[in-house]
């Protein structure tokens, strides 16, 4: 078997995509938005929109035209000053899943694309069960048409069908696609990008999403062959050929080169993380060899994406 060649069979059912009753274990989880986000309609999520909600937000000076029902008469009695109570209006949360379906994702053992789809299914199911609006977009590859406006736990089926039908191939213009998806007129929320971020432009994509008001999470999915190629059998005089691009690079894989590769990978991690953080997003690196439950219940919960 060649280096990085996928051994895992392609899943054909939701159970294969999320084996071991994984979805059932997610019933109490929810997607966390760290800050109030303006939604499209009222829902169970705090909104930046002040007004008709039940949760008190703050006081502000009365201005002519304000509804007198919201004047805080207790404050007026104490301070002899008119102030108006402002309430946080509750809206639904939009969760956007962006799945990188470029050819580079369909690689590694365990397969990155399979792992990313598994994570997308779990996160999507969590979002649907929590009553959030869910959007699913494929970046590159040959994916079914985008899913939008999914809401309610019963919509897990179309989500899984979409994920099962998605195929990774070709390249993906990450920044362009993320910019297009995040710049729509639909409500903002949490944007979760599942990608290996091996192409240039990942940080730019995060920046575009953040500037459009999305709370952005980058779940960087890397396989063991990328994290430690030397330990996974890469050695000798090789011509490394990119699965997405023409041409190749001739290398003699020795200890020096592997050290240089690890140094470059670490530098790339640091750069991407600082870029994402600077753009207001968060980056979590996922090793495809990790147990999905560990990822969901530990890494993402501790990272703050889930609760």
């Amino acid at each position: 078997m060649r280096f990085g060649e996928t051994r895992d069979p392609a899943p054909t059912t939701m159970e294969e995509l999320a084996p071991g009753g994984l979805l059932a274990k997610l019933s109490r989880m929810d997607v966390v938005a760290r800050r109030a986000i303006r939604g499209a309609r009222s829902g169970e999520r705090r909104s930046r929109k002040r007004g008709g909600g039940l949760e008190f937000a703050e006081h502000r000076d009365y201005e002519p035209g304000d509804d007198l029902r919201f004047v805080d008469w207790n404050v007026f009695a104490r301070l002899d000053r008119l102030v108006t109570k402002v309430f946080i209006e509750e809206e639904d949360l939009t969760v956007a899943l962006l799945l990188d379906a470029s050819a580079s994702m369909d690689w590694g053992n365990p397969n990155k694309f399979l792992f990313a789809r598994r994570m997308a299914l779990c996160l999507g199911v969590v979002a649907l069960r929590a009553g959030h609006r869910l959007r699913v977009h494929g970046l590159g590859g040959s994916c079914p048409p985008d899913l939008a406006g999914l809401r309610g736990g019963s919509r897990s089926l179309p989500l899984s069908s979409w994920l099962l039908d998605a195929r990774a191939s070709g390249g993906s213009d990450l920044a362009e696609t993320v910019g297009r998806v995040s710049g729509g007129r639909q409500g903002r929320g949490v944007l979760i990008l599942l990608s290996d971020c091996l192409e240039d432009g990942a940080a730019d994509a995060v920046r575009r999403a953040a500037s459009s008001g999305w709370e952005t999470w980058v779940l960087r999915t890397l396989c063991p062959e990328e994290l430690d190629p030397g330990a996974n059998g890469l050695a000798g005089d090789l011509r490394l050929e990119d699965v997405e691009q023409e041409g190749g690079v001739e290398v003699t894989v020795n200890r020096s080169l592997l050290q240089a590769y690890h140094a470059r990978l670490n530098a790339d991690r640091s750069n991407l993380e600082s870029e994402v953080r600077r753009a207001g997003g968060r980056l979590v690196e996922l090793d495809t060899s990790l147990d999905p439950e560990l990822v969901l219940f530990e890494l993402l919960r501790r990272g703050g994406l889930l609760r």
Partner: peptide, 11 residues
């Protein structure tokens, strides 16, 4: 040299 596919040449 043996032709070996990788997910990305960049690194």
């Amino acid at each position: 040299r043996a032709r070996t596919p990788v997910s990305s040449q960049r690194l």
